[in-house]
Computed example of a mutant assay.
Amino acid sequence: MFCSSPECKGQDSVTQPTGDFIAAEGDTVTLACTFQTSDPNTYLFWYKQEVNDSPKYILQRYSGGGDNAAEFQKNRFDATLNKTSVPLTIQKLQLSDSAVYYCALFPGLIAGDTISPVKEEVSGREGESVTLTCTYQTSYSADLYWYKYHSDLQAPQFILFKGARGSRAEYIPDKRYKSQTSYTSTELTIQSLTLADTALYYCDSSFSLTFLDDDDCSITVISKASISLNVNRPQQEEELHN
Rank of each mutant, 00 (worst) to 15 (best):
M1V: 15
F2N: 12
S4L: 03
P6V: 05
C8F: 10
G10L: 02
G10F: 15
D12K: 03
T15R: 13
P17N: 07
T18E: 08
T18H: 08
F21W: 11
I22H: 05
A23K: 09
A23M: 04
G26E: 03
C33P: 01
T34H: 04
Q36C: 01
Q36D: 11
T37N: 05
T37V: 06
Y43K: 13
Y43E: 09
W46M: 07
W46G: 05
S54H: 07
P55S: 02
Q60S: 06
R61K: 14
R61P: 00
Y62V: 00
S63A: 14
G65V: 07
N68A: 06
F72V: 09
F72G: 13
Q73P: 08
N75I: 11
N75Y: 08
R76K: 14
D78H: 06
A79C: 05
L81I: 05
L81Q: 03
V86T: 15
L88C: 05
T89R: 12
I90L: 10
Q91Y: 04
Q94G: 08
S98K: 07
S98R: 11
V100W: 09
F106S: 04
F106N: 02
P107T: 10
G108R: 05
L109T: 15
L109D: 13
L109E: 15
I110S: 15
G112N: 11
P117R: 03
V118L: 09
K119D: 08
V122I: 14
S123P: 04
G124A: 08
E126R: 13
E126I: 07
G127D: 06
S129D: 11
Q137C: 01
S139P: 04
L144H: 00
Y145V: 01
W146P: 02
Q154V: 14
F158V: 00
F158E: 00
L160Y: 03
L160S: 00
K162G: 01
G163I: 01
S167H: 03
R168N: 15
A169R: 12
E170D: 04
E170W: 00
Y171T: 00
P173Y: 03
D174P: 07
D174N: 14
T181G: 03
S182N: 02
T184C: 04
T186S: 08
T186P: 01
T194S: 09
A196T: 08
T198E: 05
A199T: 04
F207L: 07
F207R: 03
S218A: 11
I222W: 09
K224L: 12
A225S: 12
S228M: 07
N230G: 05
E238Q: 13
